[in-house]
Amino acid sequence: MNAPRLVVVGASWGGVDALQIVLGALPATFDAAVLVVLHRAQGVRDVLQHVLQRSCSLPVGDVEDKQPILPGRVYLAPAGYHVHVEDAHFGLSVDDPVHHARPSIDVAMSTAAEALGPKVTGVVLTGAGRDGAEGLALIKRLGGCAIVQEPSDAARADLPRAALDAVQPDRVLALEEIATWLAERGGGAEVNGGASPD
């Protein structure tokens, strides 16, 4: 199976604004898939897709169970579900929340790393709590690329700080720089050219 490169972006508090900037900078020719995991409340009428679609030139939609991962698309983790990456498609679960979150950034990033290894880039943006730190570390261990938003640039610095405690990332960047970096690299995966174990 020909699995595509995948960028997993995690955020919580302040995430909607940050995501508009990052996704807004991706060109229509972007050739990796993007999975967005944003902590969000269940039950409220779901407008996230519409909000993000307005600023993004790639098609944006909620993940469906067993949906194939296609390049040039932005997938949102649906409220109330964990997203699991399995080879070349997404799966969903209603397993217990991780760090009080479902969807959890750790679940998405860990399963992405385990399924796709060096083809994964993890990006941890603004937020409260520490969800995502462990997943980002695993992405790095399995040969992928780790990006963390500069804590001083984040609306809430907890999430990026926790990530920085857990892993030595490839880049620590401000939001606009993350957007440019991803856009230039078309997904940015395999930055290490096969990865060095550390």
């Binding site: 699991h84 399995e86 799966g91 397993d95 679940v107 385990e114």
Partner: peptide, 9 residues
């Protein structure tokens, strides 16, 4: 069964 959730459990 799908492997990812199974593996975590």
């Amino acid at each position: 069964y799908a492997r990812s959730s199974l593996r975590r459990r």
